[in-house]
Write a protein that binds this DNA or RNA. Structure first.
Length: 275
DNA sequence: TTCGTCCTGGTA
DNA sequence: TACCAGGACGAA
């Protein structure tokens, strides 16, 4: 599941490889178009001939800025991958969209479960997208005060609030479970019940797990790969996610798997006490 | 605010 | 063979 650290890793990998390359042609390989809002032919007509100027990440979105003023917006959802390849490399059966670039380079969107989305946006479209999303948790502006302000308005569970991209951008199920364990907060706590000290712990935990995930180049269970097709390494450092039955690294009690906000949720029932 | 939907491979 | 995994969005 590509979350902030995974998308950031892909963005960094791709930036050094595809910036200043021309899009020479586009191949849409799925009868059900991966491209949202525009017929595949129109998509090709609007991007072929443009140069890739910049790659950015906003939340879990990867934004490819072109020389013609348009942006290709990619969301990998659960199983999407953006892989760099050479034309001679045989395409994976999972390939859905191929951008053929100058310099005999290809950028391929592969997706087992076909949830990934690609769309085209102008500057205003990117502004609208960004406005819909909450703050970037690794930015300087993401202070304890900002976190407190955004959580105080929430009435649902802490986990549901943290998964909402309009509250904070970039967190998904893995890093939310890890951050809540790190902060010793139960996922079903009401956000408004958090003390100043607990908010401080949560703020530090969110940043810490994301930074560690980034340092490990993301988390791979089965699907996630970086732009070169390599798995990440953070799964070896996870403390609760997918570790049900294993001893809590702090107190030794078995990690429990339950369901919160409709998502599989992993926690230590001794270290993370409901408020 | 919660649930169903999209989708397919892996697992019980 | 049925169910589970889950990001985002629309419906109830």
């Amino acid at each position: 599941m590509p979350e902030l650290p995974e998308v950031e890793t892909i963005k960094n990998d791709l930036s050094s490889e595809v910036v200043n390359h021309l899009i020479e042609s586009v191949d849409s390989l799925d009868p059900r178009p991966a491209i949202f809002g525009i017929p595949p032919g129109d998509f090709a007509a609007r991007v072929v001939g443009a140069c890739i100027e910049q790659l950015q990440r906003r939340g879990k979105y990867l934004i490819i800025t072109l020389s013609n003023g348009l942006h290709i917006v990619v969301h990998l959802r659960m199983t999407g991958r953006l892989i760099l390849a050479r034309p001679a490399d045989p395409p994976s059966r999972l390939a859905r969209l191929i951008l053929r670039l100058s310099g005999r380079l290809e950028l391929r969107l592969e997706d087992q479960r076909k949830f990934a989305t690609v769309s085209l946006a102008d500057d205003k479209g990117i502004e609208d997208l960004s406005r819909r999303l909450g703050p970037e948790p690794l930015s300087e502006g993401f202070t304890v005060e900002v976190l407190a302000d955004r959580l105080m308005k929430q009435r649902r569970s802490l986990k549901a609030a943290l998964l909402d991209q309009s509250v904070i951008a970039g967190l998904g199920n893995i890093y939310v479970d890890e951050a809540l364990f790190e902060a010793r907060l139960h996922p079903e706590r009401r956000p408004s019940s958090l003390s100043r000290m607990e908010l401080g712990r949560l703020h530090a935990a969110i940043r810490r797990v994301l930074q560690m995930g980034l340092a490990s180049r993301g988390t791979t269970f089965s699907d996630y790969r970086d732009a070169f097709g390599r798995p990440g390494g953070y799964q070896q450092h996870l403390r609760v996610y997918r570790r049900a039955g294993e001893p809590c690294p702090i107190c030794g009690r078995p990690i429990v798997k339950t369901s919160v906000a409709g998502r599989g949720t992993h926690l230590c029932s001794r270290c993370q006490v409901p408020g």
